[in-house]
């Protein structure tokens, strides 16, 4: 990936991320966060994580941000934005962010193993097609032999072969979450006692 694209998408991610905090209107914040996540998905794709990039767009910008916008519009909280920001909180927040960023920069400055480019750690489909775990799945081996990266298939292989239990646990979590949302948002009836 050309380096200017990295800087472009990094700027989109961070710039719109900053706009989430600065915008006075919550709807502007939500839409800025959606654009920021699209930039982040582009960074994922630049790291050859196509599946994660698409999931990021589908789940975050597709589902989560729509839910946020829905709640913002449902609650009609436009009228409460006139209040001034708390000065102490603003100074504290900015100092915290600057110090954390400087600390990350300082640590990365001495992190020599991180100074490698993607070209130096190039993916090799030819070597990968000879792997033992890949040889068991013919469709992945065929894709790799053709010189393409079957990212979603490899993710599926990892998830179902190594993390099958975790996948089921996460499914249960989603079910519990759904039931919890229904219970939480149910209007309490005046005659019945709250459980």
């Amino acid at each position: 990936m050309p380096s200017f694209l990295f800087y472009l998408f990094a700027a989109i991610t961070l710039g719109f991320g900053l706009n989430v905090i600065l915008a006075r209107n919550p709807v502007t914040s939500a839409l800025s966060l959606a654009v920021s996540f699209v930039g982040l998905a582009a960074l994922f794709i630049s790291l050859d994580a196509y599946f994660i990039g698409i999931i990021q767009i589908l789940v975050y910008t597709g589902a989560v941000m729509v839910l946020f916008l829905f709640i913002i519009m449902l609650l009609d909280i436009q009228k409460e934005e006139a209040k001034r920001a708390n000065t102490a909180a603003v100074i504290g927040g900015v100092v915290l962010a600057v110090v954390l960023t400087l600390q990350v920069a300082a640590v990365l400055g001495v992190f020599k193993e991180g100074a490698v480019t993607t070209e130096k750690r190039a993916l090799s489909m030819e070597i990968a097609s000879k792997r033992e775990d890949v040889a068991q799945v013919k469709t992945i081996q065929k894709d790799l032999a053709a010189g393409t990266l079957p990212d979603a298939k490899l993710m599926g292989m990892t998830l179902f072969e190594q993390y099958g239990f975790h996948l089921q646990a996460i499914g249960l979590l989603l079910l519990v979450g759904t039931v919890g949302v229904v219970v939480l948002s149910k209007r309490e009836s005046p005659n019945k006692p709250v459980v």
Binding site: L18, L47, A89, G93, A97, V104, F111, A115
Partner: peptide, 30 residues
Amino acid sequence: MITLNHYLFVSGALFALGLAGVVVRRNIII
């Protein structure tokens, strides 16, 4: 050239932005 450190810095900066937002803003949805 783009190295791993570039990505890690963007990650750290994004985390710092989120942290600042949690401290600064008072709207619970933000």
